[in-house]
Structures are given as structure tokens and as C-alpha cells.
Design a protein around this nucleic acid. Sequence first.
DNA 1: GCGACAG
DNA 2: ATCTTGTCGC
Length: 321
Amino acid sequence: MEGIGILRNFRKDFYSLVSQIPKGKVTTYGRLAKALGDKIAARAVGTMLNQNPDPITVPCHRVIRSDGTLGGYGKGKEKKKELLEREGIDIEDGKVIDFDDILHLDFDSDRPLKKLRQIQENVKKKVSVQDLCGEVSKIAGVDVSYSYPKAYSTLSLWDDGEEIDRFTVERETKFPYIPTYLAFRELPCLIEVLEKAEPKPDIVMVDGNGVLHPRRIGLASHLGVEMDIPTIGVAKTKLCGDVIEKVDKDHRVSEIRYDGELIGHAILEGSRAKNPIYVSPGHHVPYDKTAELVRKYCEYKIPEPIRKAHIEAKKRRKKDG
DNA sequence: GCGACAG
DNA sequence: ATCTTGTCGC
């Protein structure tokens, strides 16, 4: 996989960025996200600060919210306030005063997320929704469960409507969850579990999007190109796009469009399901075949291969995680 | 307060 | 994704 170096060092590089904030200055979650290359990572910034391995060299107390309020702190907000005031920062009514003057902006960063976007653009060129999966009998569903920093990836293998195998692999999480960059977190896990699958599935259902993505390169599509296998993306909530027509018991399928372009379908199956799932081609599977195949495997809201994988991965996490 | 960004 | 008891509803 391209950009593996970035993935391995992403967290370390982030903590180095935080260490650049000098005493007497502050920055915001969003500014740090921008320094990483994409403001969408603001919440991931908060999560990583929360996992700060060394508060001595990584001054996460100097990261506050864009409205001047302090935000969270591992040892409590009072401790954060105390540390900031000790560094000469004025706080009134829980807000930092004279914000602009002490805002640290000039981070020395190579903006790793910008590079990852470039990788996505390159991979996207290789995505195809042409039918190359042929006659489908063997289907795999994959899902990943987390107990930081461990990741448990489970594969559920089906042949002719019957589950024939199910197993889990364990590895370290190297990259945080950042919306639209999910592939860089889960791809290593999914590739590892899929390489061990025997026999090889004709098609893989992934817990995440395919081309239903702002850059048309979600996890399922990225995985499909990376391993050169047919894939389908199945998401439980909507990442982007508009559901054209309301889905209910009578209208179980609706197109999802983004900038007027078809990028997937909302599908409501399973008698107890209230909200739809969001389905899109990953690689080498057309839109109609994607929707048809997913519906066929929906006993409940989520297609069975993914559901079984999901339950098993969670079980493994709770057992030895 | 609303809207909201896969896992 | 994870943190988490009981509870409401089909």
C-alpha cells in the first residue's frame, strides 16, 4: 500500500506538532487539524490529545476550542485552566482572553493528510464499476473492532447462502479514525484477514463505503483496487450525498446522488429496521448488482456476512481485548 | 439550537 | 468505533 510510512508515523508526527506550541501561546483543535492537512480531522485531534503518551513534552493543555473555551483535559478542566494561567494566559468566565495575540499558527508540518488525499486521487483512477465479479457464489463479509491500540478483524465466508468459515486476526491500530480517511485506518487489517481467506471469495462486502465518498474513494473501493478484487460498500450512516426518494416499507430502495451524480443506494430491509443502510459499489461491481446482492443477504438490517463478522469481531475484542 | 462527518 | 442499565415498542 502506498503511503505506509505516513500511516506508521502519523500519531508521532502529530504529537511533534503539538510540541511546537510554545509556552504562553495556545492553538485550537481545528488549527491543528489544518496543520495535519484537513480541518475535518478536528475531532480526531481531540481524541489523539486524549491519548497523549507524554504530557511533559506534549503540551495538550495549550489546545483549546475555537470559541476560546478550554475544551477537555485528561486531568480535568480545572487543571488545564491552572496550567494555562501559570503560563501567563488570562482566562475569564472559562474563556481565553485576547485570543488572536497568543494564537499559535505557524506550524512546521508536511501536512500528511494532503498526501493521503493525493494517494486517494491516484487509487480512484483505477476504480471500476464494470461487472468483473461474474457468477457470485462465494461471499465474504469483513468488519473491524477496536480496543485501543488493538484491532480485531473478522472475516465471515459464505458459499451458496451458507456460512462456511469465520476467523479473526489481531493487529495494532496505526492510524486514527478520520472521516473520509477510513481506509488508512482499516486497510491493513482487512488486507491481512483477506489474505488468509480460503477459498477466495468472489466478492467482499465491507463495513464502510465504496464510491459513496466525497472523492469517490471510500474504504471498499480502496480495498478493491489495492487487492484487485470485487468489493461492495455497506454503511450504516450516510457520509455524503442526498437520498432522492424516501425509503420505507413500500419503497425500499432509493438513489443517492452527490453533485447530481449517482453514488449509491439507500436500502431498507429487515422487518425491524427503521433506518436504511447506504450501499455503493466498491470495485468491479455495477450499481444495480450491488444493491441486488446486498438485499438478497439482508435477513436483518445489515447483510448477514457483515453482521456475522461484526458480532464475532466484537466478541473477540471483549474476550481478550 | 441546528446541522452533522463511514468506522 | 467505544463508553453503557434499563427500558420502550413492535
